[in-house]
Simulated scan of single mutants.
Amino acid sequence: MTKLNAHDVVQLARSSKRLRTIEIIDYITDSFIECHGDRYYGDDSAVIGGIGLISGEPVTLIGIQKGQTLEENIDTHFGSPSPEGYRKSLRLMKQAEKFNRPIITLVNTPGAYCGIEAEERGEGEAIARNLLEMSQLGVPILSIMTGEGGSGGALALAVANDVWMLEHSIYSVLSPEGFASILWKDSLRASEASDIMKLIAPDLKELHVIDKIISERSDEGLLSHETILEQLKSDIINQLGIYKSKSVDDIKSERYKRFRQF
């Protein structure tokens, strides 16, 4: 099978046909109860969060949801969370710590919502608060990039003990278009930017930014969604088993050391 370049992966990561957060949650959990609201302002449709059972073990799942229709994308701001989305996430993470549940985050966002109303409600503070609080949580956090992982909007759910990526996902400080606009004053050079930004899974694995790549293709071609989900669920169950053997101090220390290496 022809090797994909970085620009090809960017297009796949942004595809409307990618697995959505709710589809992943429905497959990997035996049951799931969704929770709503940040207890400050409102609810954010771009962030799905709640409590689920994976192989009988309770976990907290939080994911960024994109739409597949124009109406869904408008409702979710094309997968760009607002401040209340990040605050809802933090509320659920603190709840998970209280009841000693592992946390799994599923990230697929071009970045935080940049509308003026989001700024008025404290977008920057909400993201910064998540970074601070996640760094100190006493339960394990597993973060999985499932599509786009854009800037602080993605990092706000990725201060984790382990960070994984689906093979055709991306993770970077900004978009290739933004990179090209800043460096060359020409967003049309986004394809060229993609090749030098080190935003695809193999490059990030080599740099130790991520810990694991979930395959999305074989020598014969692209894998089916069901095959990808089956492998993802198996890997998650194995990882949850590893976390069980670790103390609270181990969890905090390993997360701290992971990010101090950069």
Rank of each mutant, 00 (worst) to 15 (best):
L132F: 11
R101H: 15
G115Q: 12
L131G: 02
E123F: 03
L131H: 06
I127P: 00
L92M: 14
L132A: 13
E120N: 11
N108P: 11
L106M: 11
K98P: 01
L137F: 07
R91Y: 06
A128Q: 10
E125H: 06
E97I: 04
I127N: 00
E97G: 03
G138M: 14
A112H: 03
R91K: 12
A128K: 07
L131R: 02
G115V: 13
E125T: 10
T105P: 00
R129K: 14
L106G: 02
E120L: 13
N100P: 00
E120H: 10
A128V: 06
C114L: 14
G111I: 08
C114A: 15
A112V: 07
E97N: 04
A118M: 06
E117Q: 09
L90P: 00
T105L: 01
F99Y: 11
K94Y: 08
V139H: 03
A118G: 13
N108D: 15
R129S: 13
G111V: 06
P102T: 12
L90V: 02
K98E: 13
L131F: 08
A126T: 04
L106K: 03
N100G: 01
Q95H: 14
E123L: 15
L137V: 14
R121D: 10
A126G: 04
V139W: 03
M134I: 10
R101T: 04
V107R: 01
G122W: 04
S135G: 13
C114T: 15
M134D: 01
I116H: 07
Q136I: 12
A128F: 02
E119T: 05
G138L: 10
L131S: 04
P110K: 12
F99T: 08
A96E: 05
M134S: 01
R121G: 03
N100A: 09
G111R: 02
Y113H: 13
P110S: 15
R91S: 05
L132M: 12
L106Q: 03
S135V: 07
C114W: 08
T105S: 15
N130G: 02
G124W: 02
P102A: 12
N130K: 00
L90M: 11
E125G: 05
P140Q: 15
L132T: 14
L132K: 14
Q95P: 01
G122V: 06
G124E: 07
G138V: 13
A118P: 02
K98H: 08
N130Q: 04
G115L: 11
